[in-house]
């Protein structure tokens, strides 16, 4: 819904700059997550499966409860965990700013549009904020902030391959996990290829081209990338076959969870169920 606004804010920058910006954002995010996951901190020492289960339970609880206080409480726990795991506050505030910008735009009209008792009248404009409107808008924002913080804490304290392996512990089929793993790996290859192509073009283009031509350029880049993708997939298939792949992928089993890990997961499950159905 905020797409339109997003366009207006960014319309002055060229598509090359913006695309490069977004790509570098993805690379930065994965790199800083790798760095923070390698640091010593509270959650870095916890089994990835426990963290995945824990994050999922807390996100679910924050999404299920109608209570502002509980959502905020879980949010506070998330921030506490982030700090205990030595995540930088700056990264969290960047995350929150993005989330607030996106969901804030969506939540704002709800203040006035939700039917209910008048609660406050905006001076000058004369619009009325309803009690229900205020409650629903703040609940939405609290939920979004809390859940995105939990997701970020999970990714920033767990190496991504560990997270991938943890997914298997929760009955995700092997083929899905292998697919996700291969995709993630090749995303970075395509990012490199794209950067090479775009940066070459950017340096060659001093002046601004007409929109149609810029569009043609972007589309051609996508086309080249796609041809490369198909060629690559054929070669990767051969490389997999050469090492014995025949359609079913076999992977190593994980070490079983320790009793303490089970205890942590169970305790959290009981706690979450308890606060939801009290």
């Amino acid at each position: 819904m905020s797409e339109g606004l997003h366009h207006l804010v960014h319309r002055r920058k060229g598509f090359l700059d913006r695309t490069l910006g977004e790509i570098s954002h993805v690379v930065d995010r994965s790199f800083s997550a790798e760095l923070s996951a390698a640091q010593g901190g509270l959650l870095q020492g916890v089994d990835a499966r426990v963290k995945l289960a824990g994050a999922a339970l807390l996100i679910l609880t924050a999404a299920a409860t109608p209570s502002h206080a509980l959502v905020a409480g879980i949010g506070a726990v998330a921030v506490g965990l982030a700090l205990a795991s030595r995540l930088r506050l700056g990264e969290l505030t960047t995350l929150w700013t993005g989330v607030l910008l996106f969901s804030g735009v969506i939540a704002l009209p709800a203040l006035f549009l939700t039917p209910g008792e008048p609660w406050w009248r905006v001076p000058i404009l004369g619009w009325t904020v309803t009690t229900t409107g205020f409650r629903t808008a703040t609940l939405l924002l609290a939920r979004v902030l809390t859940t995105s913080t939990l997701g970020s804490v999970l990714v920033s304290t767990t190496p991504w391959h560990a997270l991938l392996r943890a997914m298997r512990a929760f009955r995700l089929p092997v083929v899905a996990v292998v697919l996700i793993g291969m995709t993630y790996r090749y995303i970075f290859l395509f990012i490199q290829t794209t950067l090479d192509m775009l940066e070459g073009r950017q340096s060659r283009l001093a002046g601004e081209l007409p929109a149609a031509q810029r569009r043609g350029m972007a589309v051609a880049t996508v086309g080249v990338l796609m041809s490369k993708a198909f060629e690559l997939s054929g070669d990767v298939h051969l490389a997999m076959q050469a090492r014995g792949y025949r359609g079913e992928v076999h992977v190593l089993d994980e070490a079983p969870l320790r009793p303490l890990d089970w205890l942590m997961i169970s305790a959290l499950t009981v706690l979450c169920a308890g606060v939801l159905w009290r």
């Binding site: 598509f15 977004e22 292998v178 697919l179 090749y186 794209t194 990338l225 198909f230 025949r246």
Partner: peptide, 22 residues
Amino acid sequence: SRFLPLIAVFSAFSFVIMMFNL
């Protein structure tokens, strides 16, 4: 057996083009 590399590589491709600003 081609399905695995094909889907993975195309999926990576679509992830990357979702970042393109057209």
